[in-house]
Nucleic acid binder design. Structure first.
Lengths: 227, 227
DNA sequence: TTGATTAATTTAATCACTTGATTAAAATGG
DNA sequence: CCATTTTAATCAAGTGATTAAATTAATCAA
């Protein structure tokens, strides 16, 4: 196989096409995004999509592969950090429970920051669309993004709430926790009107983080909760 | 204007087309949904879409009008019930604060129930899509669905948390609260894998409601929260 | 109750246009 | 020179919209 590195001529074209495709797919959705629009934005010939990716669907998959790699680079370190922080303390210890809220904040803040970046706004849109009708493309990011991050959150929620990590109740609780921050990425239309925010800038993110921390502290404080 | 009631021949055709359009738009999205597919599913001629709605876009708007009416019928009573319950008690009273969690549950349970119904699964998909790129169609449901329901939640959160109802912090908190339940409607793909749920049936909804209540009680219990 | 008249509705055919993919020729660079 | 990559032209299929003809149902006169 010829090198896919972005140094070669072929590699550069692939890169440009993928980057353009992320924008167009994100804005229009898979079906409404025309290969011509993608090629035009990339300053490339339309036929190159078939040549390099085998077709529109191939390009779409390449986009998810690309996003998966980028996402791993940003969220990977956070995931590792959180994992080691938990494992550093004995399971069930009070110290571990005290870590739950700050670690949850760390994960959710990272998620918010990554997905709210102007560059990755298209990511969020693409993933959200795929989310509603998962195709094979979803597999390319599920393992890490959802599997790993959601798994970590579930683990933390289990520690913080005393629930069994493998119980449905705990998983539900974990998704609810994620929902508290994801809502701002998903319901941008509503947020824009409700808050009269034109963008999800740093000050808006700070406010969300602040309220998120309050909420998490209330939910997973170290006091015992009623059975 | 000739009657639009579903008794007349014209009215029946309009009704059938709208119902079919909800399914097709929901499954495929606006662009990917072809007028022929909509007409076929409705057992009608494709040209009738232009005749009755002026075109594809007109049909799309009619769909939102339809959804808006239906949603009002289901959520309207809940909204009224909650409003009167709050107003029955003096503002700032302890009794009012005690109502916050049950009333929030009532709203969110209603939302979950409505949007999780098999018939309205398509609604959720259409609204979510529109949410990401709001067009004029969004206006047809914003006022009630988001404006009113979100407004009520914001009001309850204000009472429960002691925040100023008009502050950004309170609005953020309200959206976070809604996010806890909406995530299950939005991230079906993730939920399906994480929980290994094939549908959002009554037992699944019951589990969500239960955890939701726990979470809300922790967040908005009557104890004073730190400033 | 008839049968003709008329407007509203439905149908089939066709319009110009865009879609994703393919092809053969041209260009590029090692 | 030659393999790789890019280009322009073309394909069949599908798009939303429009048209004129056909059908339906209601109205009025007898």
């Amino acid at each position: 196989m010829t090198a896919k590195n972005s140094e070669s001529r072929s590699g550069k074209t692939r890169d440009t096409l993928i980057r353009s495709a992320i924008e167009v797919f994100g804005r229009a959705g898979y079906d409404a995004a025309s290969t011509r629009a993608i090629a035009d934005r990339a300053g490339a010939n339309q036929a190159l999509i078939s040549y390099h990716f085998g077709g529109k669907k191939g390009l779409y998959l390449a986009v998810f592969e690309y996003i998966g790699v980028e996402m791993r680079q940003v969220l990977g370190p956070i995931a590792k950090q959180v994992t080691t922080a938990i494992q550093a303390l004995p399971a069930g210890s009070a110290g571990q429970r005290e870590l739950v809220v700050p670690l949850l904040c760390q994960i959710l803040d990272g998620l918010l920051e990554v997905m709210a970046r102007p560059e990755s706004e298209s990511w969020a849109r693409i993933i959200l669309r795929e989310q509603q009708d998962p195709t094979e493309a979803f597999d390319l990011i599920w393992d890490f993004f959802v599997g790993k991050m959601l798994g970590l959150v579930t683990h933390l929620v289990a520690i913080g709430s005393g629930m069994d990590e493998n119980s449905d109740a705990c998983k539900v609780r974990a998704e609810m926790t994620l929902g508290q921050v994801l809502i701002f990425l998903i319901a941008r239309g509503t947020t824009a009107r409700h808050m009269q925010w034109s963008e999800l800038g740093s000050s808006e993110q700070a406010l969300i983080r602040q309220q998120l921390r309050h909420s998490l502290e209330r939910q997973f404080s170290t006091e015992v909760s009623p059975p």
